[in-house]
Nucleic acid binder design. Structure first.
Length: 919
RNA sequence: GGGUGCUUAGCUCAGCUGGUAGAGCGUCGCCCUUACAAGGCGAAUGUCGCAGGUUCGAUCCCUGCAGCACCCACCA
């Protein structure tokens, strides 16, 4: 093995081998286990959130694969309608061309080309991260098979009466010029104004005053409402008003919709441009007057003076005209929520159009029940409340989009406006027996991306065909995703999956937190704090990092600040850490918290961990030969001890995986590896291995234990750190007598039932405490390691002496002592510093090497601590109700503690006196 | 307006069904001891947000408050 661990040399090579050998495909006949990947945008790149999510899914996948399950991690990408279309459109614009010049067909060809070009990026990145997806089953939402699934789903829902076409108000994005669903609208509080405007009575005698945040919509007003109980307007129901600037007359009506407490109590009604007003209008039979074009300019329904003006321009003009007419009563500042399109950032308009909708109520009911009765379980559990909250108030889902990139809606219109839904024009003509001469035109629109995403678990497995994969892997086992798409995606998969198959799409939904930067900020291009996971893996020079963060900004003026903060945070760029270190970091970050702060310092730490493991393996390989020599074996206590500790660690890791506590799994395996295996066990084994005088049977046992423990440890670590474990395992396994092409297909470790050994653990605890006691004296009294110590044992029991004898070689080496001898009965103890180990006192004679003051200080410090503990324990035991009510076990334990403290205190006092007398 | 989280060592976070507060990073000493200086050995550091309550006992359970996030919602 190379002396240093260098991830770059091993990772790519190993991944290719796995892939070439087909190790990612489901195998065996164990119970099925399946995860479908949340499909990233095909033209996108992986960010930290993806890398985190992929790490979790891969860890689960590898864990289950090793546990013997027939495991499929289903990969794929999403066509991401709006996002992708916007990117390509921007490319076009940069070339000085527009979408419409190109035409629909040519544009789509162009998007496909772009998809082919950039579509491999994600896959390349996933390979670097070690993702063990079954690439042979890679899918794209616009693949022919998946497109067929989408079409089939649409047709069936239509036939089931769950899809309809309707003219109503939708959220209209005037920049993208498409309808969007409620979920794609982001409402933010912003500062605005409240305009108070007078609407004169038609008879010229007086006026009412309305308050509005959107004066330009007055051009579409069809009524003004006041509350029926509002005394101020008693008897005015039905009075006609002269709508300013328009020459139109509209009625004043009494309607409970108006809130007497707001503004003047009068509200203008614009049913074509406001969701509330629309509802009132429907109820009251008011007309709809649309005054806006698709790009939110004033249309020809409005007075000539305003036609063609942008809505915000029109607002200014109208306010000015009202003021000039003396109708503007006042303007006051007002906080209001502004709805913006989540992609374009444009203010969304409620706009009257024909769109396709999914009638969700019937779909939602079984989807709610599935979570209520536990067929689907959220982890952490409380996300079900979020799910319920939304599902119980769900509204019909607008699924048509006025885009070109996506699944075209399979509907055709006759000249009379009749709607025919089917697989193709021919099919439609056939089913409905339409004359060949009857002209049919297909709907121009495409479906919401989330419609096809909602089918993902079934469509990737082959639905609507009844494939082998579908029957094997559906329902899938667990969905791993972020809480931000519970509504967009999770809920829709449940509804659609259940409707089409009668079964839930997944049994568990593991909701992970959001990766933020080290300051807790969301990572975003415009904040300039994004990290490319592969830059952490491979490292990146400072200048390259700065360039990466500052190019392609939507707001180029942010570049200098971003460059500055980047240089400050990473003065030397980012060093290479390797994939395993990054993955281990993600695993240890995967707590139940919803915000996860990513700190590069942790990756550094886990890279060191990789190095530690690497070197431990080197030691094991250097200390053993292949194959293990035959012969009788005599395991030492520490051999049995490490097996006992390994068993406990295995149990902890398995439990952690079962609970999706990757952080606890990582922690358990980290602590075992570093603190138990490396810090203690390897050192324990050295005297046996490196001495020519040791018992050959003990040596054989040590070598076996070394190899077997490491081999199991590698398997235990593999789901989280696949590369380094594979690399080391390839060398270690043969010596441990394990055969196999790859660690990937080895069984996940199981704790042998008889491995746990409390007796041995307590004996080794004694050994370790002995060593620690001497080391502490050395450290605190500043005795150089080169100074050999000979210690005396005072008040040693038979057991102490036996233990010392059994472990003398280890203790001498690790505590750095030349030897230890028991104090004879009646022999006066030497002047010495002492470490306490139960009743046993380990005396380090002070002759000439101990600083009296330092030792006194040391004793005093310890005494303070013990006194504190003692006081606490005795207070507890002095409390009658504690003794009475606490479980006997607890009380007994407390009594023991008290005794121990008392004894220790006495010993400390005695020691203190003796040392002080040296002065 | 409704809902959900969070507050523990300088920083980032664990702490399972209430029973002696932990880790990593950082800090401070001493060591290049032949697996590893990406290391070893040792050390320091906490009124567990605040105030009540339940309990023999509360970081943990309950109530209230404060601060910080986030989600949902049509108030002109």
């Amino acid at each position: 093995m190379d002396k240093t661990y260098s991830p770059r040399d091993i990772e790519e090579r190993i991944y290719h081998r796995w892939e070439d050998e087909g190790l990612f495909a489901p195998a065996g006949d164990g119970p099925p286990f399946c995860i479908v990947i949340p499909p990233p945008n095909v033209t996108g790149t992986l960010h930290m959130g993806h890398a985190f999510q992929d790490t979790i899914m891969d860890a689960l996948t590898r864990y289950h694969r090793m546990a013997g399950d027939r495991t499929l991690w289903q990969p794929g990408t999403d066509h991401a309608g709006i996002a992708t279309q916007m990117v390509v459109e921007r490319q076009l614009n940069a070339e000085g061309r527009t979408l419409h010049e190109l035409g629909r067909e040519a544009f789509n060809e162009r998007v496909w080309r772009w998809k082919e070009e950039s579509g491999g990026t994600i896959a390349r990145q996933m390979r670097r991260l070690g993702a063990s997806v079954d690439w042979s089953r890679d899918r794209f939402t616009m693949d022919p098979g998946l497109s067929r699934a989408v079409q089939h789903a649409f047709i069936r829902l239509y036939e089931d009466g769950l899809i309809y076409r309707g003219k109503r108000l939708v959220n209209w994005d005037p920049v993208l010029k498409t309808a969007v669903s409620d979920l794609e609208v982001q409402s933010e509080e912003e500062n605005g104004w409240l305009w108070h405007i007078r609407y004169p009575f038609a008879n010229g005698k007086g006026h009412v005053t309305i308050a509005t945040t959107r004066p330009e919509t007055m051009l579409g007003d069809v009524a003004v409402a006041f509350h029926p109980d509002d005394e101020r307007y008693r008897g005015l129901d039905g009075t006609m008003l002269a709508l300013p600037l328009t020459g139109r007359e509209i009625p004043l009506i009494a309607d409970a919709f108006a809130d007497p407490a707001f503004g003047t109590g009068c509200v203008k009604l614009t049913p074509a441009h406001d969701f509330n007003d629309y509802e009132v209008g429907q109820r009251r039979g008011l007309p709809l007057l649309n005054i806006l074009t698709a790009d939110a300019k004033i249309n020809d329904e409005a007075p000539a003076a305003y036609r063609g003006l942008d809505r915000f321009e029109a607002r200014k003009r109208i306010v000015a005209d009202l003021e000039a007419a003396g109708l503007l009563e006042k303007v006051e500042p007002h906080r209001l929520t502004i709805p913006r399109g989540d992609r374009s950032g444009a203010v969304v308009e409620p706009w009257l159009t024909d769109q396709w909708y999914v009638r969700v109520e019937k779909l939602a009911a079984p989807a709610i029940r599935a979570v209520e009765d536990g067929r689907i379980r959220f982890v952490p559990e409380n996300w079900d409340r979020t799910y319920f909250e939304w599902m119980r108030n769900i509204k019909d889902w607008c699924i048509s989009r006025q885009l070109w990139w996506g699944h075209r809606i399979p509907a055709w219109y006759g000249p009379d406006g009749a709607i025919y839904v089917g697989e193709s024009e021919d099919a439609v003509r056939g089913t409905h027996q339409l004359a060949a001469s009857l002209p049919l035109t297909q709907d121009e629109d495409v479906l919401d991306t989330w419609f096809s995403s909602g089918l993902w678990p079934i469509s990737t497995l082959g639905w609507p065909e009844r494939t082998q994969e579908l029957s094997t892997f559906y329902p899938t086992s667990v969905l791993v995703t972020g809480f931000d798409i519970i509504f967009f995606w999770v809920a829709r998969m449940v509804m659609l999956g259940m409707h089409f198959t009668g079964e839930v799409p997944f049994r568990q939904v593991y909701i992970h937190g959001l990766i933020r930067d080290h300051e807790g900020q969301k990572m975003s291009k415009s904040k300039g704090n994004v990290l490319d996971p592969l830059d952490i893996v491979d490292g990146i020079e400072l200048e390259a990092l700065v360039a990466k963060r500052t190019t392609g900004l939507m707001q180029p003026q942010l570049a200098p600040a971003i460059a500055r903060s980047t240089r400050k945070q990473f003065p030397d760029g980012i060093p290479a850490h390797g994939t395993d270190a990054l993955r281990f970091t993600f695993a240890s970050l995967a707590t139940l918290s919803r915000d996860l702060r990513f700190d590069l310092g942790r990756v550094d730490g886990y890279k060191n961990f990789c190095n530690k493991l690497w070197n431990a393996a080197r030691f094991v390989l250097m200390s053993t030969e292949s194959p293990l020599p035959a012969g009788p074996e005599a395991p030492a206590a520490h051999d049995r001890w490490i097996r006992s500790r390994l068993a406990a660690t295995i149990a902890a890791v398995r439990e952690a995986f079962a609970q999706y506590r990757f952080d606890l799994a990582a922690q358990a395996v980290y602590e075992f590896t570093w603190y138990e295996f490396c810090d203690w066990y390897l050192e324990f084994s050295k005297p046996v291995l490196q001495s020519d005088e040791s018992d050959p049977a003990a040596r054989r046992a040590a070598r076996r234990t070394l190899l077997e423990t490491l081999e199991a440890l590698l398997r235990l670590l593999h789901p989280i750190m696949p590369f380094i474990t594979e690399e080391i395992w390839g060398r270690v396994a043969p010596r441990a007598g394990v055969t196999g092409a790859s660690i990937m297909r080895q069984p996940f470790p199981e704790a042998p039932a008889d491995a746990a050994d409390p007796v041995i653990e307590s004996e080794m605890r004694w050994v370790m405490d002995f060593i620690l006691g001497v080391r502490r004296i050395r450290g605190e009294l500043d005795i150089a390691p080169s100074v050999p110590l000979t210690v005396r044992l005072q008040a040693a029991s038979t057991q102490d002496l036996e233990r010392y004898a059994r472990h003398e070689a280890v203790i001498r080496r690790m505590a750095g002592i030349a030897g230890a001898t028991a104090l004879g009965a009646g022999e006066a103890p030497p002047q010495a510093a002492a470490a306490l180990l139960g009743d046993l006192r380990i005396l380090v004679p002070m002759a000439g090497l101990i600083d009296v003051d330092a030792e006194l200080a040391r004793l005093g410090k310890r005494r303070g601590k013990v006194e504190q503990e003692l006081a606490r324990a005795s207070a507890k035991l002095g409390n009658a109700s504690f003794v009475q009510n606490a479980p006997a076990e607890v009380v007994m334990q407390e009594r023991e503690r008290l005794e121990v403290f008392k004894r220790e205190l006495a010993q400390l006092a005695e020691q203190h006196e003796r040392v002080a007398s040296l002065r």
